[in-house]
Design a protein around this nucleic acid. Structure first.
Lengths: 197, 197
DNA sequence: CTTCACATGTAAAGCGTTACATGATTTG
DNA sequence: CAAATCATGTAACGCTTTACATGTGAAG
């Protein structure tokens, strides 16, 4: 009956992954995402809390009330990976990632920019350039911070691999933005098509 | 009342953009996407047809029945950009693109790969490398094809800008995959953490 | 007469964010 | 006691894909 388990979501697995770093509450998971996989992954509370319940119903995580929820505030429910949960995580980690066609609004605007001409297109390129340069610096800082804070953590190499992806991408695309600016400069003198006000 | 028009979707604008290249039916739009912005944008029929109706209701496009729908098959409804539609497109093109945090499943798996060890992580890196190298070749072919087919089209420079984005990205990430492979090779001898079967 | 290619359209389901509602504890 | 922080949870909404339903004409 359930021969094709073509799963759609990765939220469950991402939470299992986070919990493999140690027991955490839903609130802490959300915070931890920002400090770890936040550069290439997001989850909202609206996803996290229901998913944790679902995972617990499947026996993949186990929870217990924790009164010392950070020394103040409401008591938190701390979730921990169970052995079946770890098994499931490993299983998923062993399967090739699905690729997804992404939507890139900047490229969409640039593609149609003959409609507004090179000056406006250059604004997009400049914004992109600034963003990529800032990203590059940020990734550098993350790389240094991780290396300094967890010099001996066995997972550090894997974390750095993801940081260097961001670094490589930012660098390459900052250079692309430069080239784009130069190219637009070259066609700048000409007028845009169509009627303008 | 409607002081904040914080729109969420870009489907309308993407269709206006496509129609700025010439009148087209919904079916043709879907095909054209694959040949133009398909590397960084997708739209499904389920979006295209209702959106075209919505655009027509707003007077941004105008349609008419076309019996010669490619010489065979059902007659098609061909949509054309109106002047207000072109105005709206230009307006949107002039506004900076919103950035979106993307989800990257490969990086998610690599981030947590200490759980399964370097060998399995290398599989992900190899798959990524192959994908980026194929992308690079594909972008090269697109660049050559566009340049040959539309050597004098005024929008060619803009189209090439988006192709070179893909090229720069693919090249940089293929190199990252190589570095990653080398790094994982280095830590290869060590054993993965935790218990394994 | 079946299949293919062309072509339009809707309904349902899945995924995800945002906004809202609630509660507890500490600090000023 | 007001505000801030910590914390959980749900409901509503919006976007997008997938699956389905339908129709037409040409070619084999």
């Amino acid at each position: 009956m359930s021969a094709d388990d073509a799963k759609k979501t990765t939220t469950e697995e991402s939470l299992l992954g986070l919990l493999s770093m140690g027991p955490m509450s839903g609130y802490q998971i959300k915070q931890r995402i920002g400090e770890s996989i936040g550069n290439f992954w997001t989850e909202s509370y609206g996803q996290i809390y229901p998913t944790l319940k679902r995972l617990e119903a499947q026996g993949l995580v186990a929870s217990k009330d924790e009164e010392t929820g950070g020394e103040r505030g409401r008591p938190s429910r701390v979730y921990a990976l169970t052995e079946p949960g770890r098994e499931r995580l490993r299983e998923w980690l062993g399967v090739p990632a699905r690729s997804q066609v992404m939507r890139n609004e900047t490229l969409l605007k640039l593609f149609f920019s003959d409609e507004i001409g090179p000056e406006a297109a250059m604004e997009h390129a400049r914004a992109a350039k600034q963003m990529f340069e800032m990203s590059e610096q940020r990734y550098h800082a993350i790389e240094a911070g991780l290396t300094k804070q967890w010099p001996n953590h066995p997972a550090l190499p894997y974390w750095l691999i993801t940081v260097r992806y961001g670094l490589a991408q930012s660098r390459a695309l900052a250079a692309w933005a430069d080239d784009t600016l130069a190219e637009l400069e070259r066609i700048g003198p000409q007028r845009a098509r169509g009627k303008h006000s």
